[in-house]
Computed example of a mutant assay.
Amino acid sequence: MLRLSRGAKISLWVVASLVIACTYVPLLVIIMNSFSSSRIAGWPISGFSLVWWEKALMNEAVHAAVINSLVVAAGATLIALLLGTLSAFALQRFTFFGREVVNLLIILPITLPGIVTGVALSNTFYGVLDPMGIKVGYAGMIIAHATFCVVMVFNNVIARLRRMNPNLEEASMDLGAGIGQTFRLVTFPQFRSAFIAGGLLAFALSFDEVVVTIFTAPPGVETLPLWIMNQMARPNEANQVNVVATVIILLSLIPVYFSQKASAAADAK
């Protein structure tokens, strides 16, 4: 068992405390400024007020941005769940020429800088498809998000498939169950937690995406991250952004919590 000296323990504690402080103190400042009575965000706050919460919650632009983000994230997640799961099964269960290349191509989008992906998709949508009369519009933004969301599902599902016992499926089919029944009663329950965890991570990643959205969003369409970025150029509206950011911080705890629970359940099996 590794034992640390007293000096090493103190150093580790100091470094860990600094990292935690750098992460969470700025979030606390955002939350506190959402309740500030001042028009301009700052520290310390001049007084407490709910005026910015009222303005933000009644702002129709915020409502539209939230709906756009939810629709895009949900669409991208559905695509990712389907393609990521099928890809994981294909690469785990079958041997074919070029399998490693396919595996690389699936993972590549998450390793590319967002600006590269955004420029590539924008050129394709508006430089190739648009002149051909194919208007991708809103669907193009969903497809763009799905390109990197697929990786989240793929990595979670294939990691679980590699730990599954194929004898259970063989026993099910030996007892007379068909392929569909075996998948529903034996196979899916074994990787269900990884499937859910991948979907939650994909949704969170899509909901938060900015760079790819800038290049692929149709004119006049704003997701919530784009709305926040545009509002930051208006200092008098900064506290509305703090309100929205506070809500996002609180809501983000939900998918993270369930994703952790699902991952823990997958590891326990």
Rank of each mutant, 00 (worst) to 15 (best):
R3M: 10
S5Q: 10
I10Y: 06
I10G: 00
S11P: 03
S11N: 09
S17Y: 14
S17W: 12
I20G: 07
I20C: 09
I31M: 14
M32Q: 02
N33M: 03
N33F: 01
S34W: 00
F35E: 03
S36V: 01
R39V: 00
I40M: 05
I45F: 01
S46E: 06
V51E: 15
E54R: 06
E54I: 07
E54S: 10
K55L: 05
A56Y: 00
L57F: 04
M58I: 12
A61F: 09
A65H: 02
I67V: 14
N68Q: 05
S69I: 00
V71E: 13
A73H: 02
A73M: 06
A76Q: 06
A80D: 11
A80S: 12
L81N: 13
L83N: 13
L83H: 11
S87K: 06
A88M: 04
A88H: 02
F89T: 15
F89Q: 15
T95K: 15
F96Q: 15
E100D: 15
E100R: 12
V102L: 15
L105E: 11
I107S: 07
P109N: 09
P109S: 10
T111S: 13
T117E: 08
T117L: 07
T117A: 05
A120F: 07
L121Y: 08
N123E: 11
N123I: 08
Y126F: 15
P131S: 01
G133R: 06
I134V: 13
K135W: 13
K135C: 10
V136H: 03
G137L: 03
Y138T: 10
M141K: 13
M141G: 09
I142S: 02
I142E: 03
I142L: 03
V151M: 01
F154K: 06
F154S: 05
L161Q: 10
L161C: 09
M164C: 10
M164N: 11
P166S: 11
N167S: 14
E169T: 11
E170K: 13
S172H: 04
M173H: 14
D174T: 15
G180I: 09
T182L: 09
F183Y: 13
L185G: 10
L185M: 12
P189I: 12
F191T: 02
R192I: 13
R192H: 15
F195W: 11
A197Y: 02
L200K: 06
F203C: 00
A204V: 04
L205D: 14
L205V: 14
L205P: 10
E209Y: 01
E209T: 00
V211D: 09
V211S: 10
T213F: 07
T213I: 08
A217D: 08
A217N: 13
G220R: 01
V221L: 10
V221W: 05
E222D: 14
P225H: 09
L226A: 03
W227Y: 11
I228C: 01
Q231M: 12
A233R: 05
A233S: 15
R234Q: 04
P235A: 02
N236I: 03
N239W: 00
V243L: 08
A245R: 02
V247K: 04
V247M: 06
I248P: 01
S252Q: 07
L253S: 14
L253G: 13
Y257W: 07
F258C: 06
S259L: 06
S259W: 04
Q260S: 14
Q260I: 12
A265P: 08
A265I: 14
A266W: 08
A268W: 11
